[in-house]
């Protein structure tokens, strides 16, 4: 049991993102309100961004910017965080914002058409 706890504690960032994902997923499935579903989706996506960022983190490392005056000796990978996941996530965030934008636009049109965000009310009208 203690082993498992140690294991779990050691990887606490992962548990955080798993928890976030599940929260988001739950909201998408369980809520009848479309806006809440969308918020759930956003939480779900954010969890994945956090996961990627946690990949790049290293204890005691600094930003991956090498000052020009630093000599060759200073440049050792353990001293710097991995910049790639950050770059990837910047792109991913842009993509997610795009999705969110389209989703919000659709929600606005849904609200204009049906005057509600409640899924069951909408489905009854169609």
């Amino acid at each position: 049991m203690t082993e498992f706890l140690a294991y779990a504690v050691e990887r606490y960032t992962y548990w955080a993102y798993v928890a976030l994902m599940l929260i988001g997923f739950y909201a998408m499935i369980a809520h009848g309100n479309l806006l809440k579903k969308l918020i759930g989706m956003n939480i779900f996506q954010t969890a994945i961004i956090l996961f990627f960022l946690s990949i790049s983190a290293k204890r005691g490392a600094t930003l991956p910017i090498i000052p020009p005056e630093a000599g060759e000796l200073v440049v050792a990978p353990p001293h710097f965080m991995n910049p790639l996941p950050h770059a990837l996530m910047l792109t991913a965030i842009v993509v997610m914002v795009g999705t969110l934008g389209v989703a919000l636009a659709v929600l606005i049109k849904i609200h204009r058409t049906y005057r509600t965000f409640e899924e069951d009310v909408i489905l009854r009208q169609t």
Partner: peptide, 28 residues
Amino acid sequence: SIASYALVASGGGRALMAAFRYILLGTV
């Protein structure tokens, strides 16, 4: 996917709900 969400939603009416569901599942 974003392009196709928007294209589907352009139908209005029932296409909106279809597009919204498509967005949720597609994003997952």
